[in-house]
Design a protein around this nucleic acid. Structure first.
Length: 106
DNA sequence: GAGTCATTCGTTG
DNA sequence: CAACGAATGACTC
């Protein structure tokens, strides 16, 4: 594992349940410009249950990569999971995203 | 060593 | 208002 993934995992851990993060925020927290890299590490999910990749969404509040990329049926699952966490999903966007999104991770 | 990728921003139609 | 392309850095094979 790389320090990069380690940092992401740590940041996700700092995101309380019922809240979501954006790739941009993570990338900024890691001081990187490649938002993709963040998603890449999450996609592999080096830390399966510890890194709730579904809690990470695009900067627009959309589901981002989990949408229509891989069949999309997992998307439904994630949507439900997020709703279960307190994050309501409208279509493929996060409700109150602006309120639950964390633009600034410690 | 090369290819791929879960994004984002900017510009143009 | 909407859509397309270009840029970037990391991870995997």
């Amino acid at each position: 594992m790389t320090d990069f993934s380690e940092q992401i995992y740590r940041l996700l851990m700092n995101v309380p349940k019922g809240r979501v993060t954006t790739y941009k925020a993570l990338a900024q927290a890691l001081n990187t410009k490649s938002y993709r890299a963040v998603g890449q590490a999450l996609r592999r999910n080096p830390y399966a249950p510890k890194v709730p990749c579904h809690r990470v969404v695009a900067s627009d509040g959309t589901l981002g990569g989990f949408n229509g990329k891989r069949g999309g049926r997992e998307l439904e699952k994630k949507k439900k999971l997020l709703a279960s966490e307190g994050v309501k999903i409208l279509g493929n966007r996060v409700d109150n995203f602006k309120k639950i999104v964390i633009n600034n991770i410690e």
